[in-house]
Design a protein around this nucleic acid. Structure first.
Length: 155
DNA sequence: GCCAACGTTGGC
DNA sequence: GCCAACGTTGGC
């Protein structure tokens, strides 16, 4: 199976690439969208590479990379009553939400702002740049991934 | 803080 | 199964 590439959004106030650098590995909790869940549950494989996107910040953009570090498993927060991600319809027998662990890979030398991404004609097909796309996890083409890494390295 | 775009819920 | 109402995302 060929390696796949992804982009995952997070609000840096909640969890940033720098937080990930400190903890090395983190469970990607809190996804409550079926499409995004399906990507984690059905399509991600250990070793897949991921772009870490900072959303809802100034400026939004891609801050670095990480990798998939586990098989999919149920998001523990769906069972935790005190969590805002608690889901009363989820049971241990029939969990509704799945996630994977991510592992830190790199912080980009150059943070790539959304404005900059928009200027790259090679990246014009990326989901993140389409109008109205709010999906927090999207597939990325290997060519796009490599191009972005080059930009991030300061080329 | 605004609001467009999209997803989810629930009445029928 | 439709669709209006509501909630959320996320750039600006």
């Amino acid at each position: 199976m060929a390696k796949k590439y992804w982009l995952m959004k997070s609000e840096p106030d909640e969890f940033s690439i720098h937080d990930l650098k400190k903890v090395k590995v983190e469970a990607w909790t809190g996804v409550r969208n079926y499409q995004a869940r399906n990507f984690m549950r059905d399509e991600m494989k250990v070793g897949d590479e991921i772009l870490f996107y900072h959303s809802n910040t100034k400026p939004p953009g891609i801050a670095g990379t990480m990798t998939v570090a586990s098989e999919p498993y149920p998001d523990p927060l769906q069972f935790k009553k005190s969590s805002k991600y608690f889901d009363e319809k989820a049971t241990k027998e029939k969990p509704r939400w799945f996630l994977i662990d991510v592992k830190f890979q790199s912080v980009f030398q150059n943070y790539i702002s959304l404005d900059q991404l928009k200027e790259e004609t090679k990246l014009s097909e990326m989901k993140i740049l389409q109008k109205g796309n709010r999906l927090s996890i999207t597939p990325v083409k290997s060519t796009e991934f490599k191009h972005i890494c080059k930009l991030g390295a300061g080329k």
